[in-house]
């Protein structure tokens, strides 16, 4: 099953991260890619092609999700790495950290339903322009799990208009048929937004967990498409 590749991944571990092992399993055991863990005190990211900020509850999600992690020593290096064009993927808490750090526009708020939602959802692929979705097709519907209490994405009107103008909305919560409806929105997120990228398209943040569905034995292997897209990108 392993794919030959030279792309090297680094997974950042903050105090309170808890999805790093699943991400390692998906990338290394499933995709055959070389992976290292990067401690949050590290400041040297040379040698990596893609850095992943994994899910979890960094620093206990104290104050706001991602608010404290955003000032970890490693984050200065991550932002510099992204500025130079390095690929940075934020999953769930990783996405929240990116928003706090200003790597992506907008902010995350508590789910409108006031509960942590942990279930499979459907995502519609909104763009295939960029390194994270090029192995998908536009309009394709993926089945991927979410698990978060704060995935209610918010951006003001100007920021939302910018996202649309630059084709930065990458995933939306949808029905199984790919329709964008209020019922398909698990958390109250603005316009069903589930994932966005930066203008340069090298930074992606998403709430769903592709690493939890990269192995058919887990019920869905749709998450593999993210890794396959990345491995094509090299």
């Amino acid at each position: 099953m392993a794919t030959a590749t030279k792309m090297r991944f680094g997974i950042v571990i903050f105090p309170g991260s808890n999805c790093e092992t699943d991400t390692w399993h998906a990338l290394n055991d499933q995709m055959g890619a070389p992976v290292d863990y990067i401690w949050h005190g590290e400041t040297d990211l040379s040698g990596y092609d893609c850095v992943i900020l994994p899910g979890g509850f960094s620093y206990g999600d104290y104050l706001r999700t991602g608010a404290v992690a955003r000032f970890s020593p490693v984050m200065g290096a991550v932002m510099e790495f992204a500025d130079k064009g390095g690929l940075v993927l934020g999953i769930c808490n990783g996405f929240q950290i990116m928003l706090e750090a200003g790597m992506l526009p907008g902010a995350m708020m508590r789910n409108v339903c006031q509960t942590l939602v942990c279930k499979y959802v459907h995502l519609r692929v909104e763009t295939t322009d960029g390194p994270y979705t090029r192995a998908m097709s536009k309009g394709q519907v993926l089945r991927i799990p979410i698990a978060h209490g704060e995935g209610n994405y918010y951006a003001d009107e100007a920021a939302l208009a910018d996202l649309k103008r630059n084709d930065q909305i990458v995933f939306r919560f949808s029905t199984a048929e790919g329709e964008i409806t209020p019922e398909a929105n698990p958390n109250g997120s603005l316009e069903n937004i589930a994932g966005i990228c930066n203008r340069e398209r090298n930074v992606l943040g998403l709430m769903p967990h592709p690493e939890r569905c990269s192995d058919p034995i887990l019920g869905s292997a749709d998450g593999r498409l993210v890794w396959e897209s990345l491995l094509q990108a090299v």
Binding site: L63, R64, A67, E100, G106, A107, Y154, A155
Partner: peptide, 8 residues
């Protein structure tokens, strides 16, 4: 810088 998120 930290205590509040001026976006929201």
């Amino acid at each position: 810088r930290l205590l509040a998120n001026p976006i929201i």
